[in-house]
Structure formats: C-alpha cells, structure tokens
C-alpha cells in the first residue's frame, strides 16, 4: 500500500507530537481529572491510604454557599487581581515611556535606569515578601521610621495588621515585584514604533498628548492587551504574596481563592473540599483563557485586515 504525501505528513506529525501529548497527559490531564475526581469525595489528608467516600456536588455547594465565599471572591477578583493588574499596567506604561524618553538619554541614565528596573523583577517573590515585611514592620521598619521622621504620622502603623492598610500593602509588594516585566515588555514595543510616524504627526501639528493617544498607544495596544490578560491569570492564581505577607489575615481579611485552597487542604485537612475550590478556580481561569484567545484572535484579524 502506498501512502499519499499528505498521509505521510500526518503520520510523521503524529509521531513528532506524541511526546508532547504524553507529557501533557501525564502532567496536566491526569492531575486535572484526578483533582476533579477528588472534588466529588470527602477525602481528608488522614484518609489518603483508604480514600474518601463519594459526596456528589456537596463540596461545591458548601463552598458556593459558605458565608465567606463572597469575601473571598471580592478579595481575589478586586483586591488581588483588578487593583494589582491595573496599577501594574499603568505604572509599567509610565516607566516604559520614561525609559524610552529623550530626557534619560540626555542625562546618560538610560542603561543604568534599565538595569535598576530589572532588580525587583529578578528578586524571587519569597525574598521580596520577606524584605517588604521588614520594611512594613511597625517597630523596626524603615517605612514607619521615615513617616515618623517626616512627621506624617505620630504613631507607627502596623501595615500588615491594619484592615485599612493591609490590602494596599500587599498590592505594593505585588506591583513592586511584577511591574518591571510589564515595563520592559512595553519598552520593547515602544522601540518598534517607526520614528517617521511620530515625526509626521508632529509636522501635522499633533500635540504630545495627541501623538501618544493616536500614534503610540495604538502600537502598544496588542502588547498591553496580552500583558493585561497574562497578568490577570498570574495574579489571580497567585498564592505566595498573600500567604507569606499575611497568612490570609488578619483573621481572614485577605483570604483569596489560592490561600483558601491551602487552608482547607493543609490546615483543615479537607482534600476533597479544597479540590472543589481548585476546580472552581480552574473554571474561572478557563473563562479568562477563552477571553485571552478571543482577544488574541481579534487582534490577529485586525492585523490581517490592516
């Protein structure tokens, strides 16, 4: 039997893709389905050898009806994700514009500024949180010392223990650690904008703001959109910043979905229940993923249409 060239291509493509499929199955699909299976049981950490009993959708119902669900959802969607990502994008854009500006070139600080910018990004999140915990410390922290010295406050502030300051403090840590990536990515996008277009707009009498609004920003939009969506996914899933900074406290004030999973699985030992929360989280992320592909697809279409 003779195979057509197209059939041969398909077979060779299959063999080339097989290792990837196997890896995906072993490290993504199998754990995902196992987690799904656990979410329908009452298994605890003490019963790992025996296994749990099936409980249907009881874990999902309990979580979605729990009094803390709304607080956790608001914390995750608004405080952790929306506030952090919005500020990361705005500050990242401002930093990229500054790094690309003639002002920095004039004072010969471009290279230095770009290197300095990379320091927070190169700092592992664990180290960043520990360093910031010390900075925020009410008795020995330099932020309180500075505020006291300038007379802005008369008593030290326990930033990570005060309900009014704890979320801004966590947002600060996340933004400090993550914004450089946004800035560097946008800087790269800024450097692809043809100089002639900006010059042409200037000759046509465009102001600085009009130049930014109608020439620079449209060029940055594809990068900004992708960065925004990816930052949403990374931040929404993040566990490290909240857990290490506050342990989801004071009380449960900064509890988010990721820390709730950890608390339920490893302090309350309820693996089945925490798996259900994990599935809920995965569903929300899948919605973000769908949005991501839709936005990417739209942009791709726009590029092709011109």
């Amino acid at each position: 039997m003779t195979l057509t060239p197209a059939a041969r291509d398909r077979i060779s493509a299959f063999w080339m893709l097989l290792p990837t499929f196997l890896l995906l199955f072993a490290f993504y699909l199998y754990p995902t389905f196992y987690n799904l299976e656990l979410s329908f049981t009452d298994i605890t950490l003490l019963q790992l050898r025996q296994g749990g009993d099936p409980v249907g959708f009881a874990n999902y119902a309990e979580f979605l009806r729990s009094p803390s669900f709304l607080d956790i959802a608001i914390n995750t969607v608004f405080w952790l994700t929306f506030v952090s990502v919005s500020l990361m994008l705005i500050l990242g854009l401002l930093m990229a514009l500054l790094l690309n500006s003639e002002f920095l070139q004039r004072i010969r600080m471009t290279t230095f500024a770009r290197l300095v910018l990379l320091v927070p990004w190169a700092t592992p999140p664990v180290v960043a949180v520990i360093a910031w915990r010390w900075l925020f410390d009410p008795t020995h922290g330099s932020i309180n010392e500075a505020l006291l010295w300038t007379g802005l406050i008369s008593q030290p502030i326990a930033f990570l223990a005060n309900l009014t300051t704890v979320w801004p403090a966590i947002n600060t840590i996340i933004i400090w650690n993550s914004t450089p990536l946004v800035a560097v990515s946008l800087l790269a996008a800024l450097q692809t904008i043809p100089e002639e277009q900006i010059e042409a707009a200037e000759i046509d009498g465009a102001t600085r703001w009009q130049n930014f609004r109608f020439v620079t920003l449209p060029y940055l939009m594809p990068t900004l959109s992708i960065l925004g969506l990816m930052s949403v996914i990374w931040t929404f899933n993040n566990f490290v910043y909240v857990w290490l900074a506050t342990g989801a406290g004071p009380g449960t004030y900064t509890n988010v979905l990721a820390t709730e999973i950890y608390i339920r699985a490893f302090t309350d030992l309820r693996i089945g229940y925490s798996s259900a929360i994990g599935v809920v989280m995965a569903v929300v992320m899948a919605a973000f993923g769908a949005l991501y592909f839709r936005v990417s697809g739209l942009m791709d279409m726009q590029d092709r249409v011109g």
Partner: peptide, 27 residues
C-alpha cells in the same frame, strides 16, 4: 474532631474578632 482542626478554626475566629473584621459575637 482533631486538635489541629479545632486550633485552626478557633485561631481564625479569634483573629477575625481581634482585627475588627467582624464583631466578637459574629465570630
């Protein structure tokens, strides 16, 4: 009930009250 689980529940409830996140009676 498990001392560990009782501990976690109690500590969270007490901290919720102490921080002012909820009233003591609610916690």
């Amino acid at each position: 009930a498990g001392v560990g689980q009782l501990w976690n529940l109690t500590a969270r409830a007490v901290a919720t009250s102490l921080s002012g996140q909820s009233s003591s009676i609610e916690a």
